[in-house]
Amino acid sequence: MKKQKILTLIIGVIVGALTVFLLGSCSEEEFNPGLTRNFTIQASNGAAYAIKVALPEDYHSSFEKYSTVYVLDGQENFDFVANHCKEIANRNSVQHVLVVSIGYGNDRSIDYTPTKVGSNTGGGAQFLDFIEKELIPRVEQDFRVDTTRSSRVILGHSYGGLFGACVFAVNNNLFGNYILLSPSIWFDNEVSLLLEKQKRDINKDNPQLVFLGIGEAENSGRMQAPFEAFYQTLRDHYTDIKLSKNQEKNLDHVGSKNPNIIKGLNYYFKNR
């Protein structure tokens, strides 16, 4: 009995310690609420998208027009991206940006995928319509932002990265900068590579900035080779592209996301 109690105590202490660390380490620092604007857009695809906009610190004291970073999976990534944009701009003494978070209106697997494979996919075209015809006009009407293609960035991870790659191919005039992290290029037999190939002649001479990030430990048998194929395609066929690729050491699909966001933003701020 005594030994059982001791063993229970040991296991309890270990589990307890790990739980405390887990619970104590999950919070992401919130972006300054005083500089955050919230609104909802009822899109023509039927979904309501919660939008958050992070204003630069000097927004009210300057007359500058700012670049915009549109963040997919905004509910998860907004605070992290907004805080790091602020930190990088301050550190490098360069112009700040507006960060626009796009919350979930539909299931992300519907909005972020270009073709229908099963019931929960294939709404990418409608979601892109929403961004192009409803969100961007609203942001550019309500906020003091630069309205040129080269001042717009799209940032996405996983299916969000896939969506960004498809936007690159099918509507390259919308964004001039792409931060694509662990993009699901494998989706539907690499349909995003097919879209890129179909539109290549139209897009290949446009100025682009593309940062591609992935985790070195993403060994699920679908991520690395399509990612490399996309990278090589951009490298070999696009004449006016600023292109960077990063593999985060020892990190997997989820773990590599935030380190790659930081590297992607740094690349954008230094090379825009």
Partner: peptide, 17 residues
């Protein structure tokens, strides 16, 4: 991993860590 899709060039990538 090797991407061997007939629509594209064959691409292999190797990771050792």
């Amino acid at each position: 991993e090797t991407l061997d899709n007939p629509n594209f060039n064959k691409v292999s990538t190797t990771i050792s860590a």
